[in-house]
Design a protein around this nucleic acid. Sequence first.
DNA 1: TATTAATGACTGACTGGTCAGTCATTAATA
DNA 2: TATTAATGACTGACCAGTCAGTCATTAATA
Lengths: 202, 202
Amino acid sequence: MSRPCAEPPETRRRRILDAARMVLVKEDLEDLRVDDVAKKARIAKGTLYLYFRDKQALMSAVFSDLSAQLESRLQKASGAPPLDALRIIAQEHLSFMDENPDLATLLVRRDPFLRKERSAAPLRERTGAHLSILVRSIREAVAAGLLRPHDPQLGALHFLSLVRLFKVRQLLQNSGKTPLRSQVQELLDLFLKGLGSPEAAS
Amino acid sequence: MSRPCAEPPETRRRRILDAARMVLVKEDLEDLRVDDVAKKARIAKGTLYLYFRDKQALMSAVFSDLSAQLESRLQKASGAPPLDALRIIAQEHLSFMDENPDLATLLVRRDPFLRKERSAAPLRERTGAHLSILVRSIREAVAAGLLRPHDPQLGALHFLSLVRLFKVRQLLQNSGKTPLRSQVQELLDLFLKGLGSPEAAS
DNA sequence: TATTAATGACTGACTGGTCAGTCATTAATA
DNA sequence: TATTAATGACTGACCAGTCAGTCATTAATA
């Protein structure tokens, strides 16, 4: 019945999560040291284990948290007309990454499709959800004659890999001062029209 | 003056390298255990250190080796007319990955652009070389009016991310019985024409 | 040719350091 | 005082890298 701690458990959990995210990004490694997270969160290591079963659970929580945030943004697209939905999805992805750079680094660096470790499972699941939002939009766009017929899963993966591409480009040239709106346009152009000149045939 | 070993040093080095590659793929982790490599190569751990300074050097050698193989294939494209060059590059990438599946897994999983560890340096360098081959072809294609004007680095990154996309798709649906030729065509179509229907405007 | 010495490639038990997870103790609250 | 949160020193597993010793092979000698 007593709570000697200075803050509510939820807040503390959040602090640990944030610390873990920061450490994960700074280390730029796949792994993190629990001691580092504890130090960053200004708690004892033992305390951390009151909030998370083990390191795996902690890392899973970090990714789960991140992609839940992203997912809630992508929901804005549902209900919009097909192409608008795609534009919104692109925009939300890119702006989300703009607003949380380290997070973007994490999401881009960890490819959820190619990881089999336990810690990646929730992320993969979430990305599956992102995919299904995309797939729906793409199906609709094809039905409306706005996209040429194709395997929607390929289309969705392609779209996501374009998002990834833009983020990679930004990370490479750390200037990255291209305004969001034109990035979105460029992305959609690549997706819809490719790079071939209009008059040429392949 | 004596060579008690049953095989020439070059062969042995190769065996270690192959073992390391296999372990790296099977573990599906970023890391590997030197003991595992030694066991796989059927040599004592100490022997391994006669051929490689340390674990880093071993891993660097693995990636360096892999991308050198790929690079030599991509050279086939040099000299070809712009669009043919792109087709050849796509084809060589995909067929190379078909022939060496675990290697493909490695190359796709490790994103050379986003890693900072020492072991990734040679891979990043090589991929830089791949990029420059691509950039050249793309510049020529733009000059010839076959591609619309754009930042060639973006184009090259886009092309590579399409290659990656196709490999990811294949890894996801492990059936993957799409014939090479049609994959190449599909890739080029995405690159050149995108997914928009011909008559629609964005 | 038979015997012995020299060589160095190869071995694997060992070391030292790292780090995830534990738990006896302490501090805070009711 | 009773209860529970928080602590951090400790443990034990793990693993990269080492190095003193082995022994197959070659060279030298009789």
